[in-house]
């Protein structure tokens, strides 16, 4: 029982309740007004040239569609801050910021990160190379043992402080619940995150 679906029927009476701010009824896609929409290219399975914007710079890459963002970062881009541990989205060692929000780069296709602002732990330091207040706080609070989880921890903390500059310990624990530390340094990580928040409020 397939019906034809007009755009107006489809969204009639519907008002945007949120998500992404402004937005009333979505703009009419080209396909609605033209005879036939320009066909979307199907890329691959061989290497595909595209651009990734990482730590404020555009990088040309040539990768198969099956390459994950983590593959791209650690391989051709030589950014080994994000770590590969579980490779299944279960540990947070590979966390990067995607448009400012922490995500597991092992479960994101590199092609899906095209056009997005990618920040790795390498990109958190200031332009002069001065460590980010979070990085300083991790050192100050001795918030690591082996350090393998640390880039992901710092990145998740950075994402948290962007949306919540003054988190409670509970909020830090919640934001870090996808980051595992085998060495068990959690209490110090929570302390470091809040210490960095305090330092950043103080204008550092």
């Amino acid at each position: 029982m397939s019906k034809s679906l007009g755009r107006r029927d489809f969204l009639k009476g519907a008002a945007a309740v949120a998500a992404g701010g402004a937005a009333a009824i979505p703009a009419v896609a080209a396909a609605w007004t033209q005879e036939a929409a320009p066909a979307t290219p199907v890329l691959g399975p061989g290497p595909v040239p595209f651009t990734l914007r990482v730590n404020g710079k555009d990088h040309a890459v040539n990768l198969e569609p099956r390459a994950t963002l983590l593959d791209a970062l650690r391989g051709p881009l030589g950014l080994t801050g994000p770590k590969e541990v579980c490779d299944r989205g279960a540990c947070g060692a590979c966390a990067v910021l995607l448009d400012g929000v922490p995500a597991s780069s092992c479960m994101v296709l590199a092609l899906d990160a095209e056009g997005r602002e990618i920040t790795t732990v390498e990109g958190l330091a200031g332009p002069d190379g001065k460590p980010h207040p979070l990085q300083e706080a991790f050192v100050r609070e001795d918030a690591l043992q082996c350090g393998f989880c640390t880039p992901g921890m710092v990145t998740s903390c950075a994402g948290l402080l962007r949306r919540n500059p003054d988190p409670t310990a509970e909020e830090v624990r919640d934001a870090l619940s996808g980051n595992l530390c085998r060495c068990g340094t959690y209490p110090r990580i929570v302390k470091a995150c809040r210490s960095a928040a305090a330092a950043m409020k103080g204008g550092r």
Binding site: A29, A30, A31, W32, A37, A39, T40, P41, V42, L43, G44, P45, G46, V48, E64, P65, R66, G89, M107, V108, L109, L111, D112
Partner: peptide, 29 residues
Amino acid sequence: KPFSYARPASREEAVRLLSPTARPKGGGY
């Protein structure tokens, strides 16, 4: 294993591209 990839910009294009071997991808988890 290798696979191909498409990123349609409209729902019509998206549904047109699907087949038993071409699957929609949300987060991909």
